[in-house]
Structure formats: structure tokens, C-alpha cells
């Protein structure tokens, strides 16, 4: 017994399990990954950030909900929202910021935006088509302002540039990559 005992959310084996579930739903937009058995009561949005962030990355927390301790454990640099690689934002209101979209040569520079929603399954239905979806599918987030869809459409207008959204309710996540076409709301 010589190495520190870490809270579950910060253990490497948790990050591996989180990654596989997030990858699974990133490859299949509209599907929802239940992370609750890995969270120990922490929010799914924090788990998504923990999967991807480290001291080579930058984060803009627009919710102000991350504690100093969470930021220390994420070990991530903070940056203005315009330049951050990861953004944590609330889905309640329309976004009023301009995220990084990447470039034609390196579209992977587009931001990954983790959007906090109330619930992924009890809101109005969004119809999804695109890569990863057989025919069409749907996701029904509540607490996801229609302004987000307009902003996302603007940001993702020039494929391959754009942003990728991770919608997170308290225990689950769904991914809307830049390629997904969304109707409804």
C-alpha cells in the first residue's frame, strides 16, 4: 500500500470504462450512455471531462459549477471560451459565445462542448440523421434551449469545421457530432 487511493471518478480504470461508453454513443448519435454505476454521485458532465482532459488541454467553464478541487483533479488549464478546447455550458439558455471551430486543415481543433441538460429523455423530440445512424433516430433532451440548435447549425455549417456536443444530464450522456443533422424542437 504505497500509492494513493483515488476517488473512483479519477481512477484510470474508470476513465477506460467511461471512454468506451462515450465512444459507443459518439459513434451512434442519439443513443444514450448511462454512466451512473461509475459516478459515485458525481455529475456525468464532470465524468465526460475527466475522460478527456489533462494538463495539455484547456477548458472554459461557463457554468461556474466546477469546484477548485474538481479543476485540480481535471488538471486542466483554463482558457477564454473562444480558445478553449473543451467548454462546459448550460443548456438552459441559448449560447452567446463563439467557440473554436478548427480549420480546414485540422478540423479536430473544433471545440468539444459539454452541455448540461435537465434530462435526456423527457423533452421535446429531436430527429437525427447522419453518420452512425441507421435511417433516423431521436433524442429528447429537456433543458436544452432551441437557441442551441441554431447556434450549432451556424457553427457546423462549413464541414469539416464545427463543434461536437456532449449532452449530459445528471447520470447520462449523448453525443451530437458535427455531422449529425437535427430536425425538430
Amino acid at each position: 500500500m504505497s500509492v494513493l487511493d483515488l476517488p473512483r471518478l479519477w481512477r484510470p480504470e474508470t476513465h477506460q470504462a467511461l471512454f468506451r461508453r462515450i465512444l459507443d454513443v459518439a459513434a451512434r448519435p442519439g443513443q444514450i450512455a448511462d454512466l451512473s454505476d461509475l459516478l459515485d454521485g458525481r455529475p456525468a458532465a464532470l465524468a465526460a471531462l475527466a475522460t478527456f482532459c489533462d494538463n495539455t488541454q484547456t477548458l472554459a467553464d461557463l457554468t461556474g459549477g466546477l469546484s477548485a478541487s474538481d479543476l485540480a483533479f481535471l488538471d486542466v488549464g483554463t482558457a477564454p471560451v473562444e480558445t478553449a478546447g473543451f467548454i462546459l455550458a448550460s443548456g438552459a439558455g441559448a449560447p452567446a459565445f463563439a467557440p473554436r471551430l478548427g480549420s480546414l486543415d485540422a478540423p479536430e481543433g473544433g471545440a468539444t462542448i459539454v452541455v448540461l441538460v435537465d434530462n435526456l429523455t423527457d423533452g421535446s423530440t429531436l430527429t437525427l440523421t447522419g453518420p452512425g445512424i441507421a435511417g433516423r433516430t431521436a433524442v429528447s433532451p429537456s433543458g436544452f434551449a432551441p437557441g442551441w440548435l441554431d447556434a450549432r447549425a451556424r457553427w457546423c455549417a462549413d464541414f469539416p469545421m464545427g463543434v461536437d456536443l456532449v449532452l449530459a444530464d445528471p447520470t447520462r450522456v449523448a453525443v451530437l457530432p458535427r455531422t449529425t443533422r437535427i430536425k425538430g424542437a
Binding site: 504505497s2 500509492v3 494513493l4 487511493d5 483515488l6 479519477w10 494538463n55 478541487s69 485540480a72 483533479f73 488538471d75
Partner: peptide, 16 residues
């Protein structure tokens, strides 16, 4: 290890 056994230790960041 002697000090650690009689104290509590908590991580402030994940060990890298």
C-alpha cells in the same frame, strides 16, 4: 510509511 500509517493522506490531484 510510519508517518502515513498514523496520519490521513488525501490526494489533491491525480498522481501522474
Amino acid at each position: 510509511d510510519r508517518i502515513r500509517d498514523r496520519a490521513t493522506v488525501e490526494p489533491l490531484a491525480p498522481p501522474r
